[in-house]
């Protein structure tokens, strides 16, 4: 009952779907060429989007451990350090820990290549310091915090490690804009490709359309098989784009990991996630549907 029941309930949709599949299969070369064009058009913005999304996740991760180092003056004593500590407790900027100058020297001695330098020092030149982990606050907040710390007594230097993260942030914003523009451009191209494919099909089926309308076919009935065709072609183009993006991701993964490892960053580029994959195929289908819709509507308006 299920199969025949479906075709009984929606015989027109079922017939339209069948006709769409038949048309796709009836000219495999044309279909293949269309899919290559649609796939390539979708692949570029899709790849940009997937990569950008990964970078954004990565940027969020690193800005999540944003640090502000507050260095005391070298002649500051225990009282001054206690004063800063109490002020920090009041300001409550997140986690912090105190690094005593002796501790800092010890860690310098343990750092490879620095042991000789440390041993050659007559006295400890390092100051007491506080390392503040300000949580996932925005760059502006961090800057304000740093300004505040700088104004406190016996603080010699405040170092905020957010400059490069702001650069990354700005870069990602430009990247997002570029991907959006690219996506709009290629979405237009995809709609145009579908529009033209459907236009040629309509011309080939002008007789059937004319007769169907004369014997009572609604515009929706005329549009339906073309809409399914456009959506199906777009979805298949999306799948093709997806395989391209996954391929690019796979090809880039190893060299990118090596490059990033040189900067001491653990980051795996990888391919699209499942929701991203679904979105790429879905967008392909929606744009294909749109192209078909526009194409048939223009034709129907022209023939009156």
């Amino acid at each position: 009952m299920s199969g025949s029941g479906m075709s009984g309930f929606f015989p027109q949709h079922y017939a339209a779907q069948k006709s769409a599949v038949r048309r796709l299969l009836s000219s495999p070369l044309n279909t293949l060429l269309s899919l290559v064009v649609i796939g390539a058009a979708l692949a570029l913005p899709a790849a940009g989007w997937v990569m950008l999304d990964k970078l954004q996740g990565f940027a969020g991760q690193v800005s999540g451990v944003q640090q502000i180092s507050v260095f005391m003056a070298t002649d500051a004593g225990k009282e001054e350090a206690a004063e800063i500590e109490s002020r920090l407790r009041q300001a409550n900027p997140g986690q912090w820990r105190f690094v005593a100058r002796e501790e800092a020297l010890k860690s310098l001695e343990e750092t490879e290549g620095m042991a000789d330098v440390a041993a050659g020092l007559a006295k400890n030149p390092l100051p007491d310091a506080f390392v503040v982990e300000a949580g996932d606050r925005g760059p502006e907040t961090l800057e304000k915090l740093a300004e505040t710390f700088k104004s406190w007594p016996a603080v010699a230097h405040v170092q905020l490690d957010s400059a490069w993260s702001r650069r990354l942030d700005a870069f990602l914003r430009i990247g997002a804009l570029a991907v959006s523009l690219l996506a709009a451009l290629f979405a237009g191209a995809l709609v145009a490709v579908t529009f033209n494919t459907i236009r040629l099909q309509i011309l080939a089926q002008a007789a059937e359309i004319e007769v169907s309308r004369l014997i009572g076919a609604t515009d929706a009935f005329i549009r339906r098989p073309f809409q399914y065709f456009g959506a199906l072609q777009g979805a298949l183009g999306g799948l093709f784009a997806l395989s391209l993006v996954a391929g690019i991701g796979l090809a880039l993964a190893a060299p990118a990991r090596e490059l990033l490892a040189l900067y001491g960053v653990a980051f795996t580029p990888g391919g699209p996630t499942l929701p991203q994959a679904a979105a790429i195929v879905g967008v392909g289908a929606a744009l294909g549907w749109l192209g078909a819709q526009i194409s048939v509507s223009i034709y129907l308006r022209r023939v009156g």
């Binding site: 015989p11 007789a207 004319e210 004369l214 076919a217």
Partner: peptide, 28 residues
């Protein structure tokens, strides 16, 4: 409607020509 030029569809069988109006109204 019976047209002067008949408007038959020559890309399908006799039966399929007669089925067209029924598919338009959505008959199973």
């Amino acid at each position: 409607l019976i047209f002067q030029d008949q408007k038959l569809l020559f890309d399908r069988s006799v039966l399929d020509n007669v089925l067209l109006p029924l598919s338009i109204v959505g008959l199973p």
